[in-house]
Amino acid sequence: MHPFLSFTGIDTSILYFFNSAISSPILDSMMQIITLGGTQIFWVLLCLTLYIFGGENEKEAAFIALTALVMGFFLSEFLKAVIARPRPYEVLSWVKHTTTVGGYSMPSGHTVAAFSGFLALYFKFGRLWLFMLFASLVGVSRVCLGLHYPSDVIAGALLGVLCALAALKVEERVKCFGLCNFERLE
């Protein structure tokens, strides 16, 4: 394992705080619901809804979000395979978790999806604070549920932001070259 990915005191201390110190059945249930905001199925359904029932802004937001999500998915899966960091509950006996998931921990795929998707919505609808709050809650939920370290979530957030910015550039190019006219797709 890479030295910078070893279990640092800060990483495990923050994990302990969110996963054990403030844990409660009500909070755990809320985190289970919040974490759904980082699932690919949530974003596919949301983007389809925006695209089918929305106007030009909604269609553009759906395009940016889906582009960012696809980029984020492949990049995060590649990085997980390269870094190969085990999930917290696999190596720390005190970590509470209600579910086991496959794959590696770094970066958090749910956080990548949440930040790339919610940032895409911000590009078209404004209210950065609201969308960043939703994305951040998804990241926190992953730590609370014992599925990721805080550093996994930070890496996922950064990757999600980068994917959203790249998807915005793709959308600008698509519009610039006239490859897709969102107004005519209604």
Rank of each mutant, 00 (worst) to 15 (best):
I10P: 06
M30T: 11
F182P: 00
K59G: 01
T100C: 03
I41W: 12
G103T: 02
A62H: 04
G38Y: 07
L159M: 14
R85A: 07
F42Q: 02
L92Q: 03
Y51W: 13
C144L: 14
D28N: 15
V70G: 08
F18T: 02
E56Y: 05
S136N: 09
V91Q: 07
E183C: 06
A120I: 01
W94I: 09
G160M: 03
G178W: 08
R85S: 02
F7G: 02
E172I: 10
G178Y: 09
G117D: 05
A62E: 05
S116Y: 06
G55P: 05
R127H: 11
R127A: 11
V153E: 12
L92H: 05
L121Y: 00
T98E: 15
L66H: 02
W43Q: 03
E56N: 02
F115D: 05
R142P: 00
S108A: 11
K124Y: 11
A113G: 05
P107F: 06
G109Y: 01
G103K: 10
K80C: 04
K124L: 13
F123A: 01
V112T: 08
T35V: 12
M30F: 15
K124H: 12
E90P: 08
L128K: 15
P107K: 08
G9Q: 08
D152T: 11
G37M: 01
G103W: 09
G102K: 12
F78S: 10
V95Q: 03
L92M: 14
C163F: 03
T100W: 08
A135C: 04
E77R: 07
F73E: 04
K124T: 06
H2D: 06
E172T: 15
S108R: 03
I41N: 05
F125M: 05
T99K: 15
R142M: 12
Y149E: 02
V82Q: 11
F4W: 10
R184D: 08
Y89C: 06
P25L: 07
K169P: 07
E60F: 11
I83S: 00
A61E: 01
G102E: 11
K169G: 14
Y122M: 02
T8L: 11
R87E: 03
A164L: 09
